[in-house]
């Protein structure tokens, strides 16, 4: 029995997340097949076929999959499911939307946000906003897992292209209909895949001041993040939110500016390799986990940092 890996479409290049997910699939079973949804994903498919270890790529070409709703996406997975012992997807909004639907139809449990594969049936995942790590054993024959991709290394090695099989079946569209995607356009790296992140919080005081975060980020080639406080105050749209209810990131460098470090926020970034905190309150909880801390006025420190890095 093999593992089936659902890769998130619309990755212009197969970035870290997809390749890390395949790595998780290979840890479960050497016979790893990949499923990609969407008629426009040829470039992505061709890249996946070259990743060492992938045995087959399914390409579901129905145009409804260009913006896959959970109903049709889960039908497509279920059509393949009988041959697989493991069905995995990223624990992004894409994967989390679809996967529990698949698990319920298969009458099996799901483990969400797996960060560690202990054995073929035992997995670790964070609970309570990452303040505890739970080890669970799956008693079902089929294991359905959403994977925290930042917890697995991407595969660098390549192979000659594996077979690509098109799925041309049309799945019924008798549920919801996709209407519109209001994308946030940015030239900066995607938050969950960025190697460096500069994040701003309530300490920035207003949306205008957030521009210094952008300036520092651009200087470092970093993505921009934010705390929930900054999002709620309207400094920046919510897709930039890092935390338990936003995105979980684990970059090499995370610079937290004007962020106190509430439990909710720490859950989203405490696995970054190096954390830098800049805050005027020396008792801010962020300093307890920061690799390096600077206590002082961010409106003096950040411009000085920008100046020194320019």
């Amino acid at each position: 029995m093999a593992s089936l890996v659902l890769i998130e479409p619309k990755l212009e290049a197969l970035a870290r997340a997809g390749s890390s997910l395949i790595n998780a699939g290979l840890k479960l079973d050497q016979d790893t097949h990949v499923l990609v949804l969407g008629s426009k994903e040829e470039a992505l498919i061709n890249k996946i076929a070259l990743i060492k270890g992938v045995k087959k790529v399914y390409w579901a070409t129905d145009p409804v999959f260009n913006y896959p709703l959970a109903e049709s996406a889960s039908e497509c997975i279920l059509a393949l499911a009988k041959n697989y012992a493991y069905i995995i997807a990223p624990s992004s909004t894409f994967g989390k939307n679809i996967l529990p639907k698949v698990a319920a139809k298969l009458d099996v449990a799901q483990v969400s946000d797996v960060i560690n594969i202990i054995s073929q049936d035992t997995f670790q995942h964070p609970i309570y906003a990452g303040n505890a790590i739970e080890t669970v054993k799956c008693l079902d024959d089929k294991k359905v897992l959403s994977i925290r991709t930042t917890a697995f290394d991407p595969i660098e090695e390549q192979q000659p292209s594996c077979p690509i099989e098109k799925i041309t079946t049309n799945f019924p569209q008798n549920h919801g209909q996709f209407k519109q995607l209001i994308e946030h356009k940015s030239k900066r790296p995607e938050l969950t895949q960025a190697d460096r992140i500069v994040s701003g919080g309530r300490g920035l005081q207003n949306a205008e001041n957030f521009k210094i975060i952008e300036k520092l980020a651009d200087l470092l080639g970093a993505a921009i993040g934010a705390s929930r406080a900054a999002v709620d105050a309207g400094f920046i749209p919510n897709e930039f939110q890092v935390g338990q209810t936003g995105k979980v990131v684990a970059p090499t460098l995370y610079i937290a500016i004007g962020i106190s470090g509430a439990i909710q926020h720490l859950a989203g970034m405490k696995d970054a390799k190096v954390i830098v905190a800049i805050n005027k309150d020396e008792d801010a909880p962020i300093f307890e986990i920061a690799t390096y801390g600077l206590v002082g006025d961010l409106f003096k420190i950040v411009p000085e940092l920008i100046n020194k890095l320019s």
């Binding site: 992004s92 909004t93 919801g176 996709f178 209001i182």
Partner: peptide, 14 residues
């Protein structure tokens, strides 16, 4: 329904 997704906001009818 407007849904919060990683890419932004997705609007669906149901």
């Amino acid at each position: 329904i407007t849904r919060e997704v990683d890419a932004g906001l997705e609007v669906i009818n149901a």
